[in-house]
Design a protein around this nucleic acid. Sequence first.
DNA 1: CATTAATAAGTAAATGCTCACTCAACAGCA
DNA 2: TGCTGTTGAGTGAGCATTTACTTATTAATG
Lengths: 205, 205
Amino acid sequence: MTAVAARRPRLPTAERREQIVVAAMRCFAERGFEGTTTRMVARAAGVSEGLIFRHFPTKRSLYRAIIARRIAEAPAGMMPAEAAARGDDRAVLSSIASSLVARVSRDPSFMRLLFFSALEGAPLSRMFYQARVRRVRSFLASYLERRMDEGALRKVDSTAAAGAFMGMIANYVQQKHLFRVPVARLAPDELVRTWVDLFLKGLSR
Amino acid sequence: MTAVAARRPRLPTAERREQIVVAAMRCFAERGFEGTTTRMVARAAGVSEGLIFRHFPTKRSLYRAIIARRIAEAPAGMMPAEAAARGDDRAVLSSIASSLVARVSRDPSFMRLLFFSALEGAPLSRMFYQARVRRVRSFLASYLERRMDEGALRKVDSTAAAGAFMGMIANYVQQKHLFRVPVARLAPDELVRTWVDLFLKGLSR
DNA sequence: CATTAATAAGTAAATGCTCACTCAACAGCA
DNA sequence: TGCTGTTGAGTGAGCATTTACTTATTAATG
């Protein structure tokens, strides 16, 4: 974990900065802003505490850099345009659900960071939420709305419906990776199918 | 907020303890364990910092006392036994949903505390979760299972189904009271109806 | 291609401040 | 008067941040 400096590993600014950001991300995701000390970050990055402040003026600015970077990442697979274009409800919903489950399983620190930032009231937390959670729901809501207009699904409030679907998934990943409680007998792909079936049947005419 | 001491208000132990606990609950819910200082708690309770340590040996023990107390509270209305007994699906689901929404609206600090404790890895956080979240879901899962056995609902994994329903609600209250983003066009009771309709139709045979 | 001046990367050790926690003294009540 | 709830002034530890300094890399010059 700790990249111990094997004798003076002088790095160019960008690389070192990257290294610090990566280490800090792990720390902040694990213990939150208040729960993380600059000493911990330095240890995790394998550098001296002072160096952190050469790259970032304050601890808070390091935190901001991390959130900003995660905001910038693209939510790949969670807005399946093709499936949406051809009106394949099942594919749209499955894609959203399974890519969300997969993404969080691969990197739970992301979700932890999201929740920490919301709870601790970081200034960027709203943007964080908008960029990474809201957008997917809006995409789904628009899609559902269109399908309702086409008469393929029964009419209900599209935002509420999209929220309901996202909630099924969110609840699962939260329990699994945030509360870390045993969560379901079903395998992830069976769960996804269950959600999609339930939801589509619920919206059928 | 700060109950300023109007000249030496000597209180019996139990009362003073209560007062400290209540103030500390607000603080910890707002900023988490790491983000709260004993000074803040003292201010909020209107007592000196020293007094806190006469009633609780450590900051952590105060935190534990709070979590323990919240574990002990009963989740009123969220396990509607009568409606369940007479097999009124709509009443069971509506009752769970609307009492959860109402409870969190009335006291959002509860949910914040739950999430903080999970993220910060408080020792009691698992019990907290079990007592207050898991139990309701288990209740619902058993109910659904029974109704499936009776042939009133189609057969799906009851735990997954219960989780899906709870997720719809949880997602909503989280967005509203934790992320504090604008969340739905619908009024709470309309939302509840939408969830229940969607879910029951999804489980119909 | 040396030599060296300038700069960038790095650190250890301070700095002042805040934290959780303690304690001697005091004030209200039986 | 003795008991106890209460205070406010401590205390050392640990925090984010700064400083003063060392060492590696680059660039310019003869």
